[in-house]
Each structure stands twice: as C-alpha cells, then as structure tokens.
C-alpha cells in the first residue's frame, strides 16, 4: 500500500484492524448485555465474529489500497456478522471504500464518510433520533466537519452514545419495547463509539495527530 495524503500506510491499516478487533472482543460481553436489555442479545457475539473474520484476512487486506481494503472488510462483515449490524456496519465500510479516492486527505475522507453514513441510514430505513447507531455516526460527522481532532471526535462519539440512553427507540428491535427501551444505551451506538475511540487512538499513535 502506498503512502497517501493522510499518511495512512499499510502498517496503520493493519494496526487499526487489529485494535478494532481487540476492542470488540474485549467489549463483546458488554455489547451483548446492552443488546439483551433492549434487543435480542447477540450484538457483541455477532460483531466479534465479524471482526475476527476480518482479522483472519488481514494479510490479504493489507496488500490492497485503503479504499479497496475497506470495501473488502465491509463485505466480510456483511457475510459473517449475521445480525442487522453486519449489513449496517458493512455498508458503512463498503461505501467509504467506494467513495474514497486512492489518495485522500481529510476533506475527502469527511465527504466520503457523509455518503457512507447516509448509505447506512438508507440501508436501515432510519434517520437520526431513533436510538440507533446513526445517533453516533451523525455526531461524528458533525465533529469532523467542525475540524475536531481525533480525540475530540471520539469524545463526541462517546457522549452521543450516552445520549441514546434516555431516547425512545422507534427503529430496530428495541422499538418493539416502546417506552421500555428508555434507560438503556443502544448497542449499535455503543459499538460505533467504541470503534471511533479505537480509530482516534490509532491515528494518534501512528501520526501524532
């Protein structure tokens, strides 16, 4: 993989995937617990299976340009996660990969990310405010547009995940619970915030951003 404007190298990508898979594995029980409260109790296990599958193909992925690697990783998640989060997180990565030029800067990344989040919304037939992962994905977009550094973006993501606790779920399995969905963090939102934290930490370690 060649050096790009973002300075994302093959090693960076490798570290990122390894760190994401490790974070999901370490938090799988917590994510499943959140999902047991308002969903069907498999989110952590599903995400873990998906990220382990991506990890298993890391050597092959790391030989591809970043956009291609993102597409392939997204496809792997779609094929292995099993729950609705597979197509959703998979669509995020596949769209990012499709929209990113081979050599991208921050602005190009933000533009691609916006299209990717819109694609997730379309896939889930959902929008912000329904107590889903979109309630973290959109605040991340806002933070990046405002020029926040990776740490601030991650902090905004965590705050956004916390903000799903008092929300009433109107989309996804939690919506079946109606008012009883209030008082629990959305598991998809928790996963996305977790991954945003990993991305921020990895970018800082590798780029001193």
């Amino acid at each position: 993989m060649s050096e790009s404007k973002t300075g994302m190298t093959s090693d960076d990508f490798r570290s990122l995937v390894v760190a994401m898979a490790a974070a999901i594995e370490a938090n799988a029980d917590r994510l499943t617990e959140l999902d047991s409260a308002i969903g069907d109790g498999d989110h952590g296990a599903n995400m873990k299976r998906g990220f382990q599958a991506v990890l298993g193909e890391l050597d092959q992925l790391a030989t591809k340009p970043v956009p291609e690697a993102l597409k392939a990783a997204g496809m792997k998640l779609v094929m292995t996660v099993g729950g609705a989060s597979g197509p959703l997180v998979g669509t995020l990565l596949m769209t990012l990969g499709k929209e990113l030029p081979a050599d991208f800067d921050r602005q190009a990344f933000v533009m691609a990310y916006e299209k990717a989040v819109d694609a997730v919304a379309a896939r889930g037939k959902s929008h912000a405010g329904q107590k889903t992962m979109l309630d973290v994905l959109y605040p991340i977009l806002d933070a990046m547009r405002e020029g926040a550094d990776p740490d601030e973006v991650a902090a905004r993501a965590r705050a956004a995940a916390d903000a799903t606790v008092p929300m009433l779920a109107t989309r996804g399995r939690a919506s079946f619970l109606g008012e009883r969905s209030i008082g629990h963090m959305d598991p998809g939102a928790a996963s996305v915030a977790l991954l945003a934290g990993v991305v921020a930490r990895t970018l800082q370690t590798h780029q001193g951003a």
């Binding site: 069907d40 299976r49 094929m79 996660v81 729950g83 197509p87």
Partner: peptide, 12 residues
C-alpha cells in the same frame, strides 16, 4: 440461522 449456526440470517 447465522453464519455460525446460531439464530440469525446469513447473506450467503
């Protein structure tokens, strides 16, 4: 069933 044989669905 999901790809691991649990409850869920598989694109494949």
């Amino acid at each position: 069933g999901d790809p691991a044989g649990g409850l869920g669905t598989s694109v494949e």
